[in-house]
Design a protein around this nucleic acid. Structure first.
Lengths: 189, 189
DNA sequence: AAGGTCGATGAGACCAAGTCCCATCACTGG
DNA sequence: CCAGTGATGGGACTTGGTCTCATCGACCTT
């Protein structure tokens, strides 16, 4: 018999999402989250550096993106490399079984400025990661910047559509579709 | 004789910038900021909703941008409207006499994650404002999104160059230049 | 000139976030 | 049987942020 229940951080994250949905982010206390998970404030801060971070656990995304861009066909253009990376994300991270969770989480993020703020920072850092990865492919600096930002925009569009209940397509195809739309829109600016 | 020294928020912001430079953001206390400005914690939070916001006082930027985009020539394309707006910003906000201050402020922002986070949110909201303004010009949704993001990128590039000491050009021309470079880069994605 | 309102500020209680340090206690290996 | 380990608990402490009430000079009214 194990001494402690398994997966403390997972339980904390689940409890936090529940409570944020029920009472709102600013009306729930770290102590309440910890209690619902059968833990204490001390343990909460052992796993998460602050209250916001409890909803941003999966830090593997940056790595997946960078790897996806790096391993794209050498002849692929910058936006094609980004498309490959987003597709990899769809296979590993935005899988069908996580769609409901992602939707709930995103709804909570959208509803609270403090959480939107954290998300904004994550997005900027992810975009910077994509930009670096593109540079390492030999893409010139400014082009890499533009491609990374257009890729981030396509990502967001695809994510919104993926979350949308009436849509049962996978994230990968949605990302490719969004990317071609973005590319077309950029051409008429 | 005035009962109080004038411009309490301005004094608070100046004191905060000084202290952040001297001791770093997390090592300076709101009480210290208030004391240096000859005020108290109560007064600080009367003018600023939180400690970070003391470096983000000028909230007129969004209005200037939106107005600039709205008042561009009707025949102008989306990115040209953005260029007009950035030029207006250069005339009203990024004036030569504020360059030194802007540089100091930006250095502090870049050095502290908490402040970068707030800046990230501001940027997202500004980009959304530009996007809306473009939509009101009749620019189709996706095109507006792309133009707003490319405009934001050009803004950042122009700002960095403007801050750079060896460059005495005004913000407006730098923004136009950055925008044409970004446009060219987007064409080869 | 006396008195009352107004508006910016001060004082201090109070709560929650976040940090730190040390105690606990089942499991493990010798 | 015993010492070490590692996840957890407990609680003191600092700071950000909220709230309410007190202060007091300027200004206005009569």
């Amino acid at each position: 018999m194990a001494r402690w229940q398994p997966d403390a951080p997972g339980r904390l994250a689940a409890a936090a999402l529940d409570l944020f949905e029920e009472n709102g982010y600013e009306n729930t206390t770290v102590i309440q989250i910890a209690e619902r998970a059968g833990l204490t404030k001390s343990t909460f801060f052992r796993y998460f550096p602050d209250k916001r971070e409890v909803l941003f656990g999966g830090g593997t995304v940056a790595g997946l993106l960078v790897e996806g861009i790096a391993s794209a066909a050498p002849a692929a253009g910058p936006l094609d490399a980004v498309a490959d990376a987003l597709e990899a994300l769809g296979r590993t991270f935005f899988t069908a079984d996580r769609r409901e969770f992602s939707g709930r989480r995103q709804a909570v993020l959208n509803a609270h400025t403090e959480l939107r703020e954290r998300e904004a920072l994550k997005r900027i850092d992810l975009t910077a990661s994509m930009c670096e990865a593109l540079s390492r492919r030999g893409v010139p600096g400014l082009t890499a910047h533009v491609a990374a930002r257009l890729g981030a925009l396509a990502w967001e569009i695809a994510f919104d559509r993926w979350i949308d209940a009436d849509n049962s397509e996978g994230f990968g195809p949605l990302a490719r579709q969004a990317l071609t739309e973005v590319r077309a829109a950029a051409a008429v600016c």
